[in-house]
């Protein structure tokens, strides 16, 4: 308990300090609230408009929770397939690395042309965004098992499948999770962008509405919600990791 507190308080102090500076500078320099609202304004706005925001938040959350597992799953399956088929890996791995440079989000408008305005293009977009970090991390993890353990498995007469299930897969779990954590935050971002491109509800849609009304305070409320969604998803994944990787020595620093 003590040690978690020790971990939490420095960033907490930093956040409080940052908010204080923000609040003070807004009132000291008389910054107009449509340019930069103060933290207090944002807090007030978020409570006064809670019910409407709730529906939008749920819409974005729903989109995220559909797209994220699909994207992560596809990334995982592709990584496993490429790992088990070395010739396919040689052919596709460079392409996957290269295609990481294509900003998946920029494909949004194209997806609308191909798949219309429904749920499908949004799910495809989130899948694309989540796919790469998971696939790349999983492939890296699977290929980097300990050499001495690998030698042991081979000399003990382990089959390819046994080596995969008893050595490569478990030793790739930590790397895999770092990919999944990245893709969790990408998933929320992907959902919001998908809503910008075409939607009639969700936090992304709400932001567009408020933009045309110059309601900067409400846009900030939306940003806070996005951050919170990402954090919650990230924390759930981190907890899952902690439970699955409980065999790992605790880092003491």
């Amino acid at each position: 308990m003590r040690s978690t507190w020790k971990l939490i308080w420095p960033p907490l102090v930093a956040v409080v300090f940052f908010l204080t500076v923000w609040q003070l500078s807004v009132s000291l320099f008389h910054i107009e609230s449509w340019i930069l609202p103060s933290p207090a304004d944002i807090a007030r706005e978020s409570t006064s408009n809670a019910s409407g925001l709730w529906a939008h938040t749920m819409a974005t959350l729903r989109l995220t929770l559909i797209g994220f597992p699909i994207g992560t799953g596809v990334g995982l399956i592709v990584a496993l397939l490429l790992h088990l088929l070395p010739w396919a890996k040689r052919a596709f791995y460079p392409l996957i690395i290269l295609s990481q440079n294509v900003p998946s989000i920029a494909l949004g408008p194209l997806l609308i042309i191909w798949f219309g305005f429904g749920l499908l293009p949004k799910i495809v977009l989130i899948t694309l965004v989540c796919f790469f970090p998971v696939a790349v991390a999983a492939m890296g993890g699977l290929a980097q098992s300990d050499q001495v353990m690998m030698n042991y498995m081979k000399m003990a007469g382990a089959s390819k499948w046994q080596i995969f299930t008893k050595l490569e897969l478990p030793s790739s779990i930590p790397a895999l999770f770092s990919g999944v954590k990245i893709s969790a935050t990408y998933a929320v971002m992907g959902a919001v962008v998908a809503e910008w491109i075409g939607a009639d509800k969700g936090i992304g849609y709400y932001m567009l509405l408020q933009k045309s009304a110059y309601r900067t305070d409400r846009m900030f409320v939306a940003i806070v919600i996005i951050v919170l969604l990402s954090l919650v998803l990230f924390a759930i994944i981190a907890l899952l990791e902690k439970w699955l990787v409980r065999w790992k020595p605790r880092r003491n620093s």
Partner: peptide, 12 residues
């Protein structure tokens, strides 16, 4: 076989 480094599997 017993290797020079113990090489126990950390997740077992």
């Amino acid at each position: 076989y017993m290797p020079q480094q113990p090489a126990l599997f950390p997740w077992r």
